[in-house]
C-alpha cells in the first residue's frame, strides 16, 4: 500500500487516536495546573521541614522515567488489589486510561511546580513592598500582584511543559490506551506498512505547531489586556530543556 491508501483506509482510527492524545494531554495538564500553584507557594514560603516532602516528590518525579512511574501505578496497584477493592478504588486502577491520566498529572504537577516556583521568585521584590505599603493584605498581594506577574513570567515555560506532556502521552499506548501512538501501532501490526508511522509523526508535529500558535496568541492577548508590550525577562533560553 502507498501512503495515500493508508490514510484513506485508516483515517478514522488515526483521528480517534489524535482526539485521545489531546484529551489525555489537556486533562493531565489541567489537573496539574490546579494543584501546582499551591505546591509552588509552599515551596517558596514555607519552612524547610514543610518544603521537604514537596522537594522529594519533585526530585523523584523528575529523576525517574515516566514509563516507570506509569508501570508503578498501573501494574503496581495490582499488588494491593484486595485493599483497593475494599476501598472501591479498584475500578479506577484497573482502567489504563485513568492510570495514565494519574501518572501524567502527577508528573506534570512536579514540573509545573518548579516552573511556577521560578515565576514567583521572579516577581520583583519592590512590587511586593509597594503593595504592602499601600496597605494590601497578603491575600490581595497574592491575587493582584504575585499571581499575575508570576504567571506571565512562567507562561512560555508552561507552554513547553504542555508540549512535552503531549509527547510523553504517547507512552500511554504501552499500557493499551488507544491514543495516536496506540492506534498507529495497531494499524502497523495489521498492515506492516511503515508509512503509518510517518503519518503519525506528521500529526504530532501539526498538534505541536497548532499548540505553539494558540499559546503565543493567548500570550499576546494577555499582554494586550494588561497593557504591556511583551512578556518580561524569562524568555526561554535555547539550552533550556526539561531537566
Amino acid at each position: 500500500m502507498n501512503p495515500i491508501d493508508i490514510i484513506t483506509a485508516y483515517w478514522p482510527r488515526l483521528i480517534d487516536g489524535t482526539l485521545m492524545t489531546i484529551r489525555l494531554t489537556l486533562m493531565g495538564a489541567f489537573i496539574a495546573a490546579l494543584v501546582s500553584p499551591w505546591l509552588a507557594l509552599v515551596r517558596v514560603n514555607a519552612p524547610i521541614a514543610v518544603q521537604a516532602p514537596i522537594r522529594i516528590y519533585v526530585s523523584f518525579m523528575r529523576g525517574t522515567p515516566l514509563l516507570a512511574q506509569l508501570f508503578l501505578i498501573f501494574y503496581g496497584s495490582g499488588q494491593f488489589r484486595p485493599v483497593l477493592e475494599a476501598w472501591g478504588l479498584w475500578t479506577f486502577f484497573r482502567d489504563p486510561f485513568s492510570c495514565a491520566l494519574l501518572a501524567f498529572a502527577l508528573n506534570s504537577t512536579a514540573y509545573q511546580t518548579e516552573i511556577l516556583r521560578g515565576g514567583i521568585l521572579g516577581v520583583p521584590q519592590g512590587e511586593i513592598e509597594s503593595a504592602k505599603a499601600i496597605g494590601m493584605n497578603p491575600l490581595q498581594i497574592l491575587r493582584r500582584v504575585v499571581a499575575p506577574h508570576a504567571y506571565r513570567i512562567a507562561w512560555p515555560a508552561l507552554g513547553n511543559e504542555v508540549i512535552l506532556l503531549m509527547k510523553a502521552s504517547a507512552l500511554a499506548s504501552i499500557v493499551t490506551v488507544f491514543d495516536l501512538m496506540g492506534r498507529t501501532r495497531q494499524v502497523f501490526s495489521r498492515t506492516f506498512d511503515f508509512s503509518v508511522y510517518l503519518w503519525a509523526a506528521l500529526i504530532y508535529l501539526c498538534l505541536t505547531a497548532t499548540f505553539v500558535f494558540l499559546w503565543r496568541l493567548f500570550e499576546r492577548w494577555m499582554n494586550h489586556e494588561l497593557g504591556l508590550a511583551k512578556t518580561p525577562s524569562a524568555a526561554p533560553q535555547a539550552w533550556e530543556t526539561r531537566p
Binding site: K167, A170, Y197
Partner: peptide, 16 residues
Amino acid sequence: IMRGMPEILTLFVVYN
C-alpha cells in the same frame, strides 16, 4: 522535527 516527535515514535520509526 526530532524535538516535536514523541521519543517512543522515533524509536519505532528507527526500529521498524
